[in-house]
């Protein structure tokens, strides 16, 4: 849609029956930082579909929401791409937000493009950085392009809202010590909503899933250590950390997909990330370069992983891990 008079930044709150997905809090925080940088700060508006409570109001406020627009219908408690597209597009028509951020989860990546097509606006996928273009309201959204070999900064100059999806973990969720609760407004949508898509069954996945996304310390394995993964896990266990991996090992069927760090895997930001035998392709570093501290071990002194490392060691990871094991045991 063409720009009219709106200005706020909408953040879609992804939730399962009231349990908020962390990525939405990360986006609220980032949106707050962005809006504060404007000469005349604008509001961060959280968009909530489904049953709403005061606890949710407070929580969204804590993480940066100034205002909340709700559409409290029970038939919106469960995410449905068709219903959610309709209601959110109607909200966009009614409020003319400047921009809208949506978490880059499976849901978000299914929903956001559908909305952008309906309201005729631009959508940038998998933003890794969001800036203001000069001092204007325009967002300059940076994302990896060409499989991460290049970065591109994208703008949506003439259409609104300027939309972006952002993967979990790219931004940090922080609470703002605030004095007043956010304001709330109800978006009245009374028309019948029906979706042709019917949910027949939901299976929770294996609970054994790793939680590398929340880990404080990660020892990560690449193709260079594929023959000594037991050493990697042993050292990780000694350091109270989790094991992660590059995609090379996932594609090779050696590690499961939920261990994968990178553009098409998890984004992690542990206090310490130890990369063993990982070359450091941009697709990999896109998922770990925000770690507080990075140690890289690689036999190739020109490996790009050293470009992001705080401590770079040129050497055989297997031998070094063995030594680490020995010294940790001592």
């Amino acid at each position: 849609m063409k720009y009219t008079d709106g200005n706020n930044c909408f953040v879609y709150i992804d939730h399962d029956e009231g349990t908020i997905n962390q990525v939405s809090l990360e986006l609220l925080t980032e949106a707050k930082h962005l809006m504060k940088r404007l000469k005349a700060p604008e509001k961060v508006v959280a968009i909530w579909l489904g049953t709403f409570t005061d606890d949710i109001l407070k929580m969204l406020g804590d993480y940066g929401a100034d205002h909340i627009i709700t559409c409290e219908r029970e038939d919106l408690n469960q995410y449905d791409v068709m219903k959610h597209t309709t209601v959110i597009s109607e909200m966009i028509d009614a409020y003319h937000p400047q921009s809208m951020l949506i978490g880059g989860t499976v849901k978000g990546r299914e929903l956001a493009p559908r909305i952008s097509a309906r309201v005729h606006t631009g959508l940038t996928a998998d933003a890794t950085q969001i800036d203001l273009d000069g001092e204007t309201h325009h967002l300059a959204i940076t994302r990896p392009a060409f499989g991460g070999n290049l970065y591109a900064t994208i703008i949506t100059p003439d259409h609104f809202p300027q939309m972006a999806t952002i993967r979990p973990g790219v931004f940090e969720a922080k609470t703002f010590g605030h004095t007043s609760l956010p304001t709330q407004e109800t978006f009245q949508y009374d028309k019948a909503l029906h979706s042709p898509i019917e949910v027949m069954a939901i299976e929770e996945k294996d609970t054994k899933r790793t939680n590398i996304a929340d880990a404080k310390l990660i020892v990560s394995a690449g193709r260079g250590v594929k023959n000594c993964l037991n050493l990697v896990s042993d050292v990780a266990a000694h350091l109270n950390g989790e094991v992660a991996s590059s995609r090379a090992l996932v594609d090779g069927g050696i590690m499961s997909k939920n261990h994968q760090v990178g553009q098409t895997g998890h984004t992690v930001r542990p206090s310490l990330y130890i990369a063993c035998g990982i070359s450091g392709a941009v697709q990999h570093t896109a998922g770990m370069d925000k770690s507080d501290t990075i140690i890289a071990i690689n036999t190739d002194e020109n490996a790009p992983i050293f470009d992001v490392a705080d401590l770079g060691i040129v050497g055989d990871a297997q031998a070094i891990l063995k030594q680490l094991q020995k010294q940790l045991d001592a």
Binding site: S116, H120, T121, G122, L123, T124, D133, A140, A145, N149, L150, Y151, A152, T153, I154, I155, T156, P157, D158, H159, V282, P304, F306, D307, G312
Partner: peptide, 14 residues
């Protein structure tokens, strides 16, 4: 609706 403002290569400084 989207335009590429610039592209760059991030293999920055060590």
């Amino acid at each position: 609706p989207t335009k590429v403002k610039k592209t760059f290569n991030k293999s920055a400084t060590q």
